[in-house]
C-alpha cells in the first residue's frame, strides 16, 4: 500500500472531528472519499498532508510511519496536496506559483521545467506573468493542480477540486483528474460531488460523522442503496 490510514482520529480542541478512519490507497489507484459537508473530509486531507495533527491512529506512506512528521518533510517523501479553496500565492505570478511547487526538488532553482505543466494546461502559459489571484476560478484550480504536480508527487491529494466552479469547469477539472490518473499518478480525491467523484474512481469510501462507514469500488458504491439515497440524490 502506498497510503495506509489506520483507526485515525483527530480533534479541534475538545471537539472530535475524526474517529476510527481507515483508508488504503494502492499505487496507481484513483481513490475517492465522499461525504456531506462537515463530515471531516478536509480534516482527513490535512492530517495526511501534516497541516493538522492526528490525535490517534497512524498514517503510513510507502511503508513509513509519518503520523508525526512535519508537513514540509512529507512533501519531500512524495505527498503533494491541492488544498481546498486552492490556496495560491495570489499576489505572485502564475510562473512563480508553479516554480514554488518544485521547491523540494534539488534542481528547482536552475531548472523550473514548466513545459509539461503548460502542455497539460495551455491557458496557464498565456497567463504565466499575471498575478495568480487575477485568474478565473477554473484557471486558479489549474494552477493549484500544476503547482502540486511540480513536486513530482507519488501521491496527489485533491481536496474539493470542484468547489466554486461552474458546471462546465467542473467537467473540465474532472477530465484533467481522469487524465492524470491514466498517466499513472496515484490520486486520493475528496469530493462533495459524490456522483462525479465515484464515476471516475477505482474505489471509494464514504465518510459520515467523522467515521468511514462504507467502502467499495466506484461502481459498487454508485449502486449501493444507502449511498444513492444519501449522496447521489436518486
Amino acid at each position: 500500500m502506498l497510503l495506509e490510514i489506520k483507526s485515525l482520529s483527530a480533534s479541534y480542541g475538545s471537539i472530535k472531528a475524526l474517529f476510527d478512519v481507515n483508508i488504503e490507497v494502492a499505487e496507481g489507484e484513483l481513490v475517492t472519499l465522499v461525504g456531506a459537508n462537515g463530515a471531516g473530509k478536509t480534516t482527513i486531507m490535512k492530517v495526511i498532508s501534516g497541516i493538522q495533527r492526528a490525535s490517534g491512529g497512524s498514517v503510513e506512506f510507502a511503508g513509513k510511519n509519518i503520523t508525526r512528521l512535519a508537513a514540509e518533510k512529507r512533501v519531500r517523501l512524495g505527498i503533494s496536496q491541492v488544498p481546498e479553496g486552492r490556496q495560491l500565492f495570489t499576489p505572485m505570478s502564475v510562473h512563480d506559483n508553479l516554480c514554488l511547487g518544485a521547491f523540494t526538488r534539488n534542481d528547482a532553482n536552475t531548472k523550473c521545467d514548466l513545459d509539461e505543466i503548460y502542455e497539460q494546461f495551455p491557458i496557464l502559459f498565456e497567463r504565466k506573468d499575471q498575478p495568480a489571484g487575477t485568474l478565473s476560478g477554473g484557471e486558479q484550480q489549474m494552477v493549484a493542480i500544476g503547482r502540486a504536480l511540480m513536486a513530482r508527487p507519488k501521491l496527489l491529494l485533491l481536496d474539493e477540486p470542484s468547489m466554486g466552479l461552474s458546471p462546465l469547469l467542473v467537467d473540465q477539472t474532472f477530465a484533467t483528474i481522469k487524465k492524470l490518473a491514466k498517466q499513472g499518478t496515484t490520486i486520493f480525491l475528496v469530493e462533495q460531488n459524490a456522483y462525479m467523484a465515484l464515476s471516475i474512481a477505482d474505489r471509494g469510501y464514504v465518510l459520515e460523522g467523522g467515521h468511514t462507514t462504507i467502502s467499495g469500488t466506484g461502481d459498487e458504491l454508485m449502486s449501493d442503496e444507502r449511498v444513492k439515497n444519501a449522496y447521489l440524490g436518486v
Binding site: A70, P83, Q87, L88, F89, D96, C99, L100
Partner: peptide, 20 residues
Amino acid sequence: KAMLATSYNKDAAKLVGINT
C-alpha cells in the same frame, strides 16, 4: 520567493515543502 510565499499563505507554503 519562499519567504514571500510564506507571508502570503503559510499553510500553502508548508504544502509545497517550505520549512516555515
